[in-house]
């Protein structure tokens, strides 16, 4: 336990993430192959049936006789192939993910390079990488939420997972939460030869502002707001009904209406000019 405490002090300042390239990352090829195989079988059957409708003979008898309404499926075949591919890849890798979880149960804590946890963390990440990449490449904004749910992330209802990076495990997001552009929600953090894994919990109706980083171990209570361009420390607790700003988060502001905040801003300006206008100006010049 003492070693763990030491690590925490060093880790506080930096939020770096990403995973190493391991031989297991070639699982992308297996996922591509399985997705392609399903596509091939379905398309062969479909083309075969259309050929039967046109000529009355078949390349190969599948046992299913084609009907006239198979023509209606033609437009679906062209665009639906993409979705079929994505869903088979998601389902296949979700089952591999479950299998990996059965072999070695994911644990929170600090792990050294080369240990079993380190290895399995990398394996889990490379399994998840390709399906979520695919889900994000399609023009359906809720597809990545479905993909995340397949991989065991608890995502509430009517959540906006906008354009950003979110770890697939040890993340819990409550109902009606919004995350904005270019955010990073990390539940793991690689620090040279160690990896720290800690659960991130985001409550109900939270707002995670643009360009923010949520570090492992952060708990956002219900109705908390994380301001623009700020990041949280490891194991930080953000209280509800407040706006949190800072790098790392150090300032809290009350949530209020626009008029109120404008009035306050005017007051603050007056105070500054009355009492200590000169030193503040010089400070600004230095910056």
């Amino acid at each position: 336990m003492e070693r763990e405490e030491d690590l925490k002090i060093n880790l506080e300042f930096i939020s770096t993430s990403g995973v190493y390239k391991t031989p297991f990352s070639l699982i992308i090829i297996v996922q591509l192959f399985i997705g392609g195989l399903v596509l091939l079988v379905i398309n062969l059957w479909f083309i075969n049936s259309l050929y039967y409708l046109l000529t009355g003979t078949e390349f190969y008898s599948f046992g299913l006789k084609a009907e006239w309404y198979y023509w209606l499926l033609l437009p679906l075949n062209i665009y639906g192939n993409i979705f079929l591919f994505v869903f088979t890849v998601i389902l296949f890798s979700a089952s591999i993910f479950k299998l990996l979880n059965l072999i070695s149960k994911p644990k929170e804590g600090v792990f050294v390079r080369g240990s079993k946890e380190w290895k399995y963390m990398h394996r889990r990440f490379w399994t998840v990488y390709f399906p979520i990449w695919l889900a994000r490449a399609l023009p359906l904004p809720w597809l990545d939420i479905i993909a995340y749910r397949f991989f065991g992330t608890r995502v509430g209802k009517s959540v906006v997972l906008y354009e950003g990076y979110i770890d697939p495990e040890f993340v819990e997001i409550g109902d009606f939460t919004m995350t904005s552009l270019n955010i990073c929600i990390f539940s793991h953090l690689i620090y040279h030869d160690k990896v720290i894994i800690k659960k991130v919990k985001i409550g109900k109706a939270c707002v995670v502002g643009p360009h923010t980083i949520v570090s492992p171990g952060t708990v956002m209570e219900d109705f908390a707001v994380l301001g623009v361009n700020s990041y949280t420390k490891i194991n930080q607790n953000l209280k509800g009904n407040l706006i949190h700003v800072g790098t790392p988060v150090s300032i809290t502001l009350p949530i209020q209406s626009v008029e109120e905040s404008q009035q306050k801003a005017v007051k603050v300006k007056e105070d500054i000019t009355n009492s200590e206008g000169a030193p503040l100006d010089s400070n600004l010049k230095e910056v």
Partner: peptide, 8 residues
């Protein structure tokens, strides 16, 4: 990792 296509 799995950033959306628009950010890549």
């Amino acid at each position: 990792m799995f950033q959306p296509a628009s950010l890549k």
